[in-house]
Amino acid sequence: MSRLTPCFETLRDSGRKAVIPYIVAGDPTVASTVPMLHRLVAAGANVLELGVPFSDPMSEGPVIQRGHERALANHVSLTQVLDMVAEFRQGDQVTPIVIMGYANPVERMGYADFAAACAAAGVDGLITVDLPPEEVGPLNVELQKVAIDNIFLISPTTPAQRVGTITANASGFIYYVAVKGVTGAGHLDSSDVGMHLDVIRAETTLPICVGFGIKDAESATAVGAMADGVVVGSALIDTMTVAMESGDSLHDGIEKAVTLLGSIRTGIDNM
């Protein structure tokens, strides 16, 4: 079993919600990633999502696209992302890490080698945006051998009759995409989210976390009331890059993102 299931059980027992930050590995620098992950945990993150940079991040909005581009300019490969996870594990054996990316780097490494490398590094789960249940079979076989969770996206366009197909392939948690669109886009309609979460809950007992469109404590709280956790990505990266573009140091830019995550943590805990 990965660290995800015990993590969500503990949260559920104490009536708390998971706060899950997303950053791109190697953005803005290779050296900043692991320290930033530790800072996010200190600010209240329960699970970490680490983006694997890809040349063609088709589901990302402009903010995260730029993050991928900066990381690739730093020559960050999937192997290095796993090295970062291993380095993080030296200081934190508890917090689950999910890596999120696209199919091709995984295809290139090979499913069996990838699964083994993830297990060795201390990865707990995987989100592959462009591997729907229809395409995931052979990879899931390898992930299950090393007890790494495969986390699937369910979207507002997923028909009710398809939800069961997805949850049957999933473990760890379900990632509900709150808006039709790319990351960081759109306006979240919390009543619409609630309706979809009910449909998903009818099919699975897995925890459900909601992402895409969560920008601050307010939107996180609105969704957190219905879900088991919230994912925040673009808002953190945007906060960091806007700060740095207006003259902040790397350290200060990261701290502003960490502060935003802290405010989301506080908002959710006090709702």
Binding site: L131, P132, E134, F152, I154, T157
Partner: peptide, 20 residues
């Protein structure tokens, strides 16, 4: 029926597009 030409093809897209 899965859109494959031997090992090639398929539907490698984000979930939002699967129903479309």
């Amino acid at each position: 029926p899965d859109g494959r030409f031997g090992p090639y093809g398929g539907k490698f897209v984000a979930e939002t597009l699967m129903s479309a």
